[in-house]
Each structure stands twice: as C-alpha cells, then as structure tokens.
Simulated assay, not measured.
Amino acid sequence: MRLNRILLSTALVVVALVIQVSVLSRLHLPGAVPDLLLLTVLGLAMVYGHVGGALVGFGAGLLADLAPPADHAAGRYALVLCVIGYLAGLIKPETGQVKSATGPMAVVVAAALGSTLLYAGVGALVGDTAARHVGLPGLLISAAVYDLLLAPFVVPGIMALARRSEHDPLSETSAAKQATDISSGWLSSGTGLRIGGQRGTLGGLKTKARSRSTRVGRIKGVKRL
C-alpha cells in the first residue's frame, strides 16, 4: 500500500475504534452493537480493492482485538474483518465511484450478516458459545439494522476521503508535464521527421550519384572520341 493510503487508513481506523469503544458500545442497545469499524473497512475496501481491503481489515480487526475491554482471543476479529475487507474489495467499481446507493447498502447488509456469522463460527471453534446464549438470530437482525442506519453517514464520507487521497495534484501535474515533454520530444525527433530527413538525405545522395554518373559518362565519351 502507498504511504497516503496507510496514513489515511490508520487515522480513520483509530478514530472509528475510539468512537466504537467509548460511545457506541456504551449505548446498551438491544442485540448487537453498531459496528463503525466494519463500515470504515467497507468504505476503504470499495476504493482500494481487495488487497487493500484485506490489509486494512486485518489491521483494524487486530486493533479491535487488542483494545480494552477485549473479551475474546486476539486475532479473532482480525480474521473476520480481513475476509470481509477482501470480499468487499472484489466489487470495487472501476472508477472508484458508485452510481447509486443500492450497491453499497447491499454490501453493508451482507457484511453485517457475514461478519456476525463468521465471528460466531470462529468463536464456536475456539469454544466461545456466547452467541448461542444471546441468540444468533437477534444478533443478525440487530447488526444488519444498526449498520444499515449508520452506513449513510459513514461510508460515503470515507469513500470520498479515500478517493481524494488517491488523486495527488502534485503527482498529476508532474505526470502531465512528463507526458508533455515526451510528446514534444516525440514530435521534435520523431519517426516522421527522421524519415523525412532520411528521404532528404537519400534524395541528395541520388542527385550526387546522378551527377557523378553523368561526369563519368562524359569522360568516357571523350575517351571514346
């Protein structure tokens, strides 16, 4: 990942994690907790692609695993967000911009359901059965509803910041200047002018050859006479 991506992703993930731990987790809403960290990963993944999304998801999940109060094994949420970030990056638009909100909202719902199921599945493998006691269907419905309500205020802004960081005015100016220099150099010493110069040179050589042959013919004619 490039430096601007790393800096922006780190800043957004840290801010999202602080809000997640200090505000959202203390609302005591029924069911799941609104997952601001998941929405941040989704917004970055839909601009950076599957590789960037997987890296951002892994880093964000690892920070969430280590941030207090952590009540699960380290690496569990990192695995979940890494997979979600990779899958979300696979549907990245070619231009990095979405034409309607239907696609991102569908991605948010699928990610909320998928991350909850994957988190519960990994917990079952390591012996954590908390999801069974709370009720998995209630967690799925509440997670999808909370994330869907929060997504319009988070995902578009994160995608806009990510797209803006991708377009560096200095790099674009230098690239345009380089293209201009290349084009001007191609025009000044291009193939067409070289061919023309070669044609002119060949024409001069032909003229000289003809004059030489004429002189030789004249000399031969004089000798014959």
Rank of each mutant, 00 (worst) to 15 (best):
Gln198Gly: 04
Gly190Gln: 02
Thr207Asp: 12
Ala175Val: 02
Ser213Asp: 15
Asp168Glu: 14
Ser183Arg: 03
His167Leu: 12
Ala209Gln: 13
Thr191Ala: 03
Ala175Tyr: 08
Leu202Thr: 06
Trp186Asn: 04
Gly200Gln: 08
Lys206Arg: 15
Trp186Glu: 02
Leu170Trp: 07
Arg210Gln: 15
His167Trp: 14
Pro169Glu: 09
Ala175Pro: 00
Ser165Cys: 12
Ser183Glu: 05
Gln198Glu: 10
Leu202Lys: 04
Ala175Leu: 13
Ser171Met: 12
Leu170Asp: 09
Thr173Gln: 11
Ala209Gly: 11
Asp181Gln: 04
Glu166Leu: 10
Val216Ala: 12
Arg215Asp: 13
Leu170Thr: 03
Lys208Asn: 12
Ser183Ile: 03
Gly190Val: 02
Gly203Pro: 01
Leu161Ile: 05
Ser171Phe: 12
Thr207Ser: 14
Ser183Thr: 02
Gly196Arg: 06
Ser211Gly: 08
Arg215Glu: 14
Arg164Asn: 10
Ser165Ile: 05
Gly203Arg: 15
Ala209Glu: 12
Lys177Thr: 07
Ala179Ile: 02
Leu205Met: 14
Leu202Tyr: 06
Ser165Arg: 09
Pro169Ala: 05
Ser174Gln: 11
Ser183Cys: 02
Asp181Cys: 00
Ala162Val: 07
His167Lys: 07
Trp186Asp: 02
Ser184Gln: 08
Arg215Ser: 15
Ser174Trp: 13
Thr201Trp: 10
Thr207Glu: 10
Lys208Ile: 06
Leu193Ile: 09
Thr201Met: 08
Ala175Phe: 11
Glu166Asp: 15
Gln198Phe: 09
Arg199Ser: 08
Leu187Arg: 05
Ile195Asp: 04
Ser188His: 04
His167Gly: 01
Ala176Asn: 09
Thr180Phe: 05
Leu205Ser: 10
Leu170His: 04
Gly185Val: 00
Lys206Ala: 15
Arg194Ser: 05
Leu205Trp: 12
Asp168Cys: 13
Ser183Phe: 03
Val216Arg: 14
